[in-house]
Amino acid sequence: MAGLTKQEGLSSPVSVSGLSYAYPAARGGNSRLALNHLSFDVSAGEMFGVLGPNGGGKSTLFKILATLLRPGSGRVRLFGQDTQAARGTRKRMGVVFQNPSLDLRLTCEENLLYQGRLYGLSGRDLARRVDDALGLYRLEDRRRDWAGSLSGGLRRRLELAKGLIHDPDLLLLDEPTVGLDPGARKELWDHLGRIRGSRKITILLTTHLMDEAERCDRLMLLHEGRLTAEGTPEVLKGEIGGDVITLETEQPDTLLAGVRERFQAEAARLGEHVRIERKQGHSFIPQLVEAFPGLIRSVHLSKPTLEDVFIHHTGRGFWNEGAQQESRGT
């Protein structure tokens, strides 16, 4: 893919190097570092996910990529151009925000028309695009309804249609399915799949949902403003040695110390649980249960998920339930 883009004389859609961003100090407080030396590239045609818990820096990164915030330090290039000189690249970019950007007092059709005009479209070309979009997103029968009268799922769809009306090369999606019910969520993903099938488009999305991250070609984990891991979902999960065993216990510290001492296993405490990464987990469980009689309330064995990847890299639970951080055993 990289060779192809060079041949075409195109640079990668998103290229970030050494990006840091600090929010200015509030009165009396310290400035808050939201992004810390972030570097990554997204290649053309890829679906790239930025996975992280809320407050991890996703929104800040999104705003910088959307050219709403200036990068603090470091370099952010979109299609080879610095975001400071953003007007040219904005045309090639579609942005769908987490907060809706529809004008609820305009009709669906008008929302698309106005968006198109902001992107320099007009006349028959624009009318055709609006028709196509209303058809593709199955909003045809709501054409003349107020955007405010649409359900949450339909609004998201219209939002997506709006972001794509000018046929961008890069689509930025901020938490695309937040607030949607499972049906609407699935439908939105079906639409994204269809878009990717019908044209060459690069998609960058932020999410805190594991199942959404699973669907990306490549992922980066963003935690406290740092890139903690990067790779395809399979590679990331493969980094974990084998299976994940989770032990529920009333004395996590005792159990953790015991596991480390007796088995030299990679183990960590997460709240009331002790979490062990181990090859051949199923054969390890009987040894564990025999070794600590009465200490283990329940045992859970699973293949590694992206959540495990996150815990593996940060030593804490994704949802922050295990606030007590434990140093990792060997």
């Binding site: 959307a66 709403l68 904005r90 950007s101 992107y119």
Partner: peptide, 14 residues
């Protein structure tokens, strides 16, 4: 507040 402005701000216009 309603979010319309953010879409205008990222549009390729001065």
């Amino acid at each position: 507040r309603e979010g319309f402005l953010q879409a205008v701000l990222v549009a390729p216009i001065t």
